[in-house]
């Protein structure tokens, strides 16, 4: 009696079930495998063509017609200026929006409509933002093809993404904590500033940095706003002309000389390194803050 319970059944259906159970994870991981394969292939091409061209020149020199002297100093500075500025505009705005949506207007029809639209906004092609920015900021407000126009356009572009992460961050704060604070006679502002924000800030910052990474890689809207690809001066004020790294790479790639193609590969490596650094920073800062707050 006892051992019949322990012995596995041996019929066909049971064996088939076991086989499926073993192979399904492999089938499911095929998608992941293809994704990794693509990335590896891409990296391999980029690194093999561009690695020997990485040098200080690339970072410190202005663009030039001579591929062996050309660098992307103006583009790197332009990227840092515009993206940094857009983060300064976008992150506080996103946090504020999220707090309003979750802590103040929760459950109201208006807030629901707003949430839907923010989600929709995240799906709009980035070139559209560029065109709107061109019409509204560059010509409408007369800001010109300047750093500030680019920054505003980029911040609007990543606003939905960052806002959604911020909303999610607020949702991860358990209602228990809110109720606990309310039950002690705290006002909504006190609940938000003393309980909710400290707890959700790490996740919000992660969202912010992810938004920045996205903005760093954007070429299309900046192409429309800046219009310039070849700039031999640093952006010094909010109203300077500017270009960004993806545009510089685009410029190099579209040249016929093989040396420029190699240069662009090297540039891609630099861009990827910056993105990698940012993402690591995001993870590290989250870990650090989490440890402090929780």
């Amino acid at each position: 009696m006892g051992d019949t319970l322990l012995r596995a059944p041996t019929d066909r259906r049971y064996r088939l079930k076991k086989i499926w159970d073993r192979w399904v994870p492999f089938i499911l991981s095929l998608g992941l495998f293809f994704a990794i394969l693509t990335v590896v292939a891409l990296l391999f091409t980029v690194v093999t063509t561009g690695f020997h061209r990485i040098s200080w020149n690339l970072i410190l020199n202005y663009p030039s017609a001579n591929p062996y002297e050309a660098g992307m100093r103006s583009a790197i500075l332009g990227s840092i200026f515009t993206v940094g500025l857009s983060a300064l505009i976008c992150i506080p705005l996103s946090i504020a929006t999220a707090i309003y949506l979750i802590e103040y207007a929760k459950g109201r029809r208006f807030s629901e409509v707003l949430s839907y639209n923010i989600a929709n906004l995240a799906g709009v092609p980035s070139i559209v933002f560029g065109v709107v920015g061109l019409g509204f900021l560059v010509y409408g407000l007369g800001l010109g093809r300047s750093v500030i126009s680019g920054a505003f356009t980029l911040s609007v572009l990543i606003l939905p993404l960052v806002t959604i992460t911020c909303v999610e961050a607020l949702r991860t704060v358990p209602d228990d904590l809110r109720f606990g604070a309310y039950a002690l006679g705290a006002t909504t502002l006190q609940v938000v500033s003393k309980i909710v924000l400290p707890r959700s800030l790490p996740m919000m910052l992660t969202g912010g940095i992810l938004g920045i990474s996205r903005a760093l890689g954007e070429a299309a809207p900046i192409l429309v706003i800046s219009g310039l690809i070849f700039i031999r001066e640093d952006p010094v004020s909010l109203f300077s002309k500017f270009t960004v790294m993806p545009l510089q790479l685009y410029n190099w790639i579209s040249r016929p000389q093989a040396a420029f193609i190699e240069l662009s590969s090297a540039g891609i490596i630099v861009l990827l390194l910056i993105l990698l650094a940012l993402n690591s920073a995001a993870i590290a800062s989250r870990q650090w803050l989490m440890k402090r707050v929780i």
Binding site: P174, D176, L177, F179, G180, A181, Y182, A183, L184, G185, A186, T187, I195, P198, R199, V293, I294
Partner: peptide, 18 residues
């Protein structure tokens, strides 16, 4: 808010602040 400061509440699950 004033009412809640005069009438305290303790919940099902312990919810100390972090």
């Amino acid at each position: 808010v004033f009412i809640r400061s005069r009438i305290g509440m303790v919940f099902q699950r312990p919810n100390p602040f972090p």
